[in-house]
Design a protein around this nucleic acid. Sequence first.
DNA 1: CGTCCTCTCGTACTTTGGGCGGATACGCCG
DNA 2: CGGCGTATCCGCCCAAAGTACGAGAGGACG
Lengths: 215, 215
Amino acid sequence: MSIKVLIADDQPIVRTGLTMLLDAQPDIDVIGAAADGREAVRLALQLRPDVGLFDIRMPLMDGIEATRRLAGPDVTDPLPIVVITTFDLDEHVHGALKAGARGFLLKDAGPALLTQAIHAAADGDALIAPSVTVRLLAAFANAPTSSPRQPIEPLTAREEEVLLPVAQGRTNNEIASDLYITPSTVKAHIASLMRKLGARNRVEVAMWAHETGRI
Amino acid sequence: MSIKVLIADDQPIVRTGLTMLLDAQPDIDVIGAAADGREAVRLALQLRPDVGLFDIRMPLMDGIEATRRLAGPDVTDPLPIVVITTFDLDEHVHGALKAGARGFLLKDAGPALLTQAIHAAADGDALIAPSVTVRLLAAFANAPTSSPRQPIEPLTAREEEVLLPVAQGRTNNEIASDLYITPSTVKAHIASLMRKLGARNRVEVAMWAHETGRI
DNA sequence: CGTCCTCTCGTACTTTGGGCGGATACGCCG
DNA sequence: CGGCGTATCCGCCCAAAGTACGAGAGGACG
């Protein structure tokens, strides 16, 4: 059972190249090729491929919008789509991934990476070009790491317990009821939290909880 | 110029297997193998490999801690490290990537993916196993997309102006001074915000601002 | 056993926040 | 022009949050 692939790219040469490259694989079958985004969506619904391989820059409708229509958050039975582009602009990456893409490749990717991305998408997985991944990781690692301010002293277990409801906007009385303690005690814990975090009020405590990924 | 690789895994069989598999590649050279995390760090500093290929589960020091020491945020001249594990637990992924890993593979990965990950790491890029990537993407796509609640009514210009300082933990008096209005007016705007956003207090307003990416 | 820390609670006070009503000004429309 | 809606502004009043003490029960540890 080979994987049925639909290609979408406005350049005929790229379409031919991708088709030949993928058809050379024993278990990949290119069943269609679209020249713009609208045709891609139409063919996808008509031909029911297993995987879509879409360029971003296309006339009428770009690949990201096409991806959103075929794999977006509100689509039932989404089509796994690998987005491929010449320029690895961050906005493209961001847009494609939020549109529901299950892969992101650059056109300088070799045949091996391309076929692996197709296979991954067909298996319900996802593969992203290494040069793009490294930037995603930087964002991933920096965001939580770039919290210059850490608590001077470590938080106690109870303080952690109080931190969450505070960050969710619950009042002291509500928190007290939830934890079976008096509001006085809740205040004491929050005062302790504010001291340790250098916060001036509960909103700053809530922000800290958000920035450090505890919420 | 072949890529010098340092392997770290506590199981001798895995070490042998990885070594043979990688040495079979024309441009990859395994120059060392460690059986635990401490030895991995020591050998890395001594042998100066181009890429590290570390298992997570190891005695004395796990692969994530070793990665942190060799590629963490405060390390100068970090070593590109590919982390490899049998279990793709989310906490492992999270920990490894925050520790600065430039790759994350599962042990069921084929030789092609393995060598590509090594190459990517050596080139300053990063490659993540497709089955792991898909979960990262889910988090990536869901987080901003999962803002189901939008303001019933659009916010006025003044309300937007008040929203930001509120989400930064500033008090009504401070906001009033900044905007050259009285605290009463700030309260009125915030009351309007809370009504539109369905928030019960300013903390929920602040959370909304965060979740919708306005902060 | 004494010490340290956490968690708990109280009391009294000040500051901040939120609810309610009302005023002014501006633009839109018949 | 006169009415209408709304954004912006404000003051008053009470509730909630935060501050500043003090203090007892219990666990961990040397």
